[in-house]
């Protein structure tokens, strides 16, 4: 389908109260349709299905219930985008991640409102956005450094120059922390794409709004189409396609459910996916940002060449 890009103004977010505006006979607010984000576009789910989120302001939002086909389309987009994204200079990727942080910062008000409407306290919302911005900047800074820190020149016992450097694993499918409104998603997307991977992330089922708004941030941040794809929907429905797709190289699954862990790790064996299963954590803690999260989605490549004349 030819998806239309949702236009957003700071005032026209979906959280304005319909009841309030109509009662005072003022201007009717324009509500936002929350759609998914695939290949730099905002289509509705191909399945036409939705689920409903009730916000703390009594507002109700219909959210896409993404299907395995939406995931399949996302993987195609991510695969298509991957080599070009990895081929950009690290400095360029770094600037784009920084740009995402800039765009997020400028939309604090909208995100605060959304987070509050999804149940966060105003203070918590502010903190979460601040940390999300700072986390993006943290990983932006790593783009052109992690390879310096974690690569090696290997002193082999022959006349060869030998070095090992890190390269992106490829296409990563991630199920974000279901208990986090924004930070869990940002904290997994940033390290995955920092090295040149592309990602398909499933947002928290109960807190999908800021994930989609974050996609709007991404879409206005010079990030090439397909590098990040964000779906909304049910873990129970998407866990299997996420972990069985043969063109996915690595999966990140945030879950507290042992059966989901078993399923993910079992399915990963189909094509020897790299798989990381992690329990829900407090993403505000500094210890939950570190370059080893970049390393989780990289491959060590060792290159040999003779030294002669």
């Amino acid at each position: 389908m030819a998806a239309t890009k949702t236009t957003t103004k700071p005032s026209a977010n979906g959280t304005a109260s319909k009841a309030e505006t109509t009662a005072k006979n003022e201007r009717l607010a324009v509500l936002k349709t929350y759609k998914i984000y695939i290949n730099g576009q905002f289509p509705r789910t191909e399945s036409g299905r939705y689920y409903t989120i009730k916000l703390s302001n009594k507002e109700q939002v219909n959210v896409c219930l993404s299907s395995r086909k939406d995931f399949r389309n996302s993987v195609s987009a991510a695969r298509e985008a991957q080599e070009k994204w990895a081929g950009k200079t690290a400095y360029n990727r770094s600037q784009i991640l920084y740009r995402i942080a800039e765009m997020l910062e400028t939309r604090r008000a909208q995100f605060t409102e959304e987070l509050v409407n999804q149940g966060a306290s105003a203070a918590a919302a502010k903190e979460e956005i601040s940390i999300a911005v700072d986390r993006l900047i943290y990983y932006a800074g790593w783009c052109d450094k992690f390879n310096q820190v974690f690569s090696s020149v290997n002193p082999v016992s022959s006349s060869h120059f030998n070095f090992s450097s890190l390269e992106p694993t490829g296409v990563v499918a991630a199920i974000a922390d279901q208990n986090s409104r924004l930070l869990g998603l940002v904290s997994i997307i940033a390290p995955v794409i920092a090295s040149g991977n592309t990602i398909i992330a499933l947002a928290s089922t109960q807190f999908p709004l800021s994930a989609i708004t974050f996609a709007e941030v991404l879409n206005t941040s010079d990030l090439p189409a397909g590098v990040v794809n964000i779906l909304t929907g049910e873990v129970s429905e998407l866990l299997v396609p996420f972990t069985t797709h043969m063109d996915v190289n690595a999966v990140y699954i945030n879950t507290n459910n042992q059966q989901d862990k078993v399923t993910a790790e079992t399915n990963a064996a189909l094509n020897v996916k790299r798989v990381k299963v992690e329990a829900s954590i407090d993403w505000t803690l500094p210890k939950n940002e570190d370059p080893y999260r970049i390393l989780d989605y990289t491959e060590v490549k060792t290159t040999w060449h003779p030294i002669g004349i």
């Binding site: 290997n154 002193p155 082999v156 022959s158 030998n162």
Partner: peptide
């Protein structure tokens, strides 16, 4: 070529 100092995989 193989070497203990050289990662393989």
């Amino acid at each position: 070529k193989f070497d203990p100092a050289s990662p393989f995989g």
